[in-house]
Nucleic acid binder design. Sequence first.
DNA 1: CATGAATGAGGTTTCATTCAT
DNA 2: TATGAATGAAACCTCATTCAT
Lengths: 204, 204, 204, 204
Amino acid sequence: MPIQVRSAFTVEAIFDACIQVLLEGGIERLTTTRVAERAGVSIGSLYQYFPNKQSLMAAVLERHLLRVVEAIEQACSQCKGQTVDTMAAAVVDAFMTAKLQDAATSRALYAVAAEVGGAEVVALLTQRSQLAICDMLATAADHRYKDLAVISFVLSTAVVGPVQALLAAKAPSRLATAVRSQLKTMVAAYLREAASQPIERSAL
Amino acid sequence: MPIQVRSAFTVEAIFDACIQVLLEGGIERLTTTRVAERAGVSIGSLYQYFPNKQSLMAAVLERHLLRVVEAIEQACSQCKGQTVDTMAAAVVDAFMTAKLQDAATSRALYAVAAEVGGAEVVALLTQRSQLAICDMLATAADHRYKDLAVISFVLSTAVVGPVQALLAAKAPSRLATAVRSQLKTMVAAYLREAASQPIERSAL
Amino acid sequence: MPIQVRSAFTVEAIFDACIQVLLEGGIERLTTTRVAERAGVSIGSLYQYFPNKQSLMAAVLERHLLRVVEAIEQACSQCKGQTVDTMAAAVVDAFMTAKLQDAATSRALYAVAAEVGGAEVVALLTQRSQLAICDMLATAADHRYKDLAVISFVLSTAVVGPVQALLAAKAPSRLATAVRSQLKTMVAAYLREAASQPIERSAL
Amino acid sequence: MPIQVRSAFTVEAIFDACIQVLLEGGIERLTTTRVAERAGVSIGSLYQYFPNKQSLMAAVLERHLLRVVEAIEQACSQCKGQTVDTMAAAVVDAFMTAKLQDAATSRALYAVAAEVGGAEVVALLTQRSQLAICDMLATAADHRYKDLAVISFVLSTAVVGPVQALLAAKAPSRLATAVRSQLKTMVAAYLREAASQPIERSAL
DNA sequence: CATGAATGAGGTTTCATTCAT
DNA sequence: TATGAATGAAACCTCATTCAT
């Protein structure tokens, strides 16, 4: 029992240290030695929990993305049966809040995502978010959708770009507020439009 | 004069070699030695044209992004005075075509962008595209906008996420077609909506 | 008492595990952790029985060599009073049978011998075998020898090379059979010759 | 031209340094860093000529064995048409002289041979020596042989063991002299015997 | 006594960059 | 100007060994 507690503490310390190192020096200063030092742990211990640097980066990234996905899932489940406008606002709010609350971490992790293999990572985020969004949209009070797969794909990825740009630009919060409002507008408009105007039947 | 021509050829060869190496082994196999070898140039010569690895990567990335930006600028200038729906379709088409035509290169360059400093890079793309979009929207036949800055920011970044996701997932072209059509719908709906409902005056 | 029994079992398990690990991955995959794991024993326990890795390897090697030496000793004591030809055949048979019966283990242990210090190890084998061979030759029915020390040295080491080569080459058993027969011929011829033609008196 | 000279010097320096390091600290002190230091060369240069530690060790070992093999080949070619006794003496002399002239190096390299893969290495020595011995024996003035393959195998490997034992024991030269004389006796006796008494026809 | 998490010295290897030729 | 051998800091990772539990 105390063994597991110690282990958990060590792993947690390594996670935190990894993000700190990332924030300080970017991905090119992210070395296993530095992470271990910052975590107050020997390099050997680090390698007991993570077989190599990649797996450490992947774990840190996954933990971060999981939080974002969970925020979206929660928002989606709370909006079931509501109007499409409410849903749009909720999803945008959930995503932006999760991403911007510790913007620095999010920003630092983009490089990690690129290194660790964007494909699987984005897949993780996209897959689960899309499922949640599908479930939610199917219960919309004011509209019905065919091809929910494509719609939820577009919706879940369309908000990524603006947030990424805000993070990269270290934009002031005024701009963030304006963008958030605009994204709600955009998503809501899209959801209304996509319902009345079904997509080409050739699509997936 | 012939010297400059030779230089230009050499630089071009290095650019191409860099992308080839990137495609073959990803960013972690991207070494200056390998690039020089592939380009048929000595490592010493490479360092005569680029003071260090960073500058080489930045240059390659810049060349790629410039093409995308130019595609958008051209589309924007050709749509002046048209309806908002036409504009939406044109911008989406320009961006997606530019990005997806050699998807592999785009995918490979994401890691480079992350390493070389996402901020400045995204800034480059965003700034110039936004300017072009602003100019275009100001001439729309059917709508008038205030706060063009925010609207063009959202518009230019909103299309990035879906394309990135398509690239990362190595998605089939059927999905790409469907997404393209949906993005046009989304952007058009947004532009119509944003005109009638002005954004908060507090924003930037 | 039961404690000692348990100890003996544990040590035996460690010995076996050591050889298994050696067979699987060669000496560069031979780590104390792996041996302990394979033996179903904690690394701490392993270090209770062997103060360090060297001593473990030495013990495993010694156990193996002891078996070979004992086979030779037994063969020697059974041949006392016989002719030199019988003795030659018996010694060659004893050595080759002992070495080739689990050829894989013998092969794997060569690297261990080299690492653990060839000198002492070969000394162990040579010393005791030579003593046994000396004793045997002194009782030969058909010949008398001076300088038994040198003769037994040559005899006991001359058979090592061919067997080593057979092991290294993973030679088919047909070749092994032919070599065995030839070695008997060689040793017998040598013993007959060495008796009638005494060695230089300058030798040891 | 000067480039190639410099390269050759560097490689030679690395070879020598490798043997020196081996002599000083045994194989467990043989590290690439130490070799480079001792050679007065940067670690980077070492890795320009040898892609990894294994290849360095293999090259050093090969160079040593080649010298031994060449000594045997030369002795064999010089004895063609002579009697079997002369041949025996020549081969034993060639091998022992080559091995014992810098005994320390030979000793140090045994561990290397074990690590680098005994099989291929012994194969190298055995194959070429055996060929040379076969050629020589076929011209013997006083005897004819069938199954030269097996005979040369036994002959070439039988001298290895005693020399190895001498090296391992750091034996005094008196013993070495005595052993050398005995080995000549043994090999000569064997060659005379093997001619009149053909081996089993079942053999390879 | 047993356990196995923790340690950290030290190993191998890479690669951006320089500079003598 | 072009070359590519040389450099060496620094990265990743292993594993024998210890010791608190």
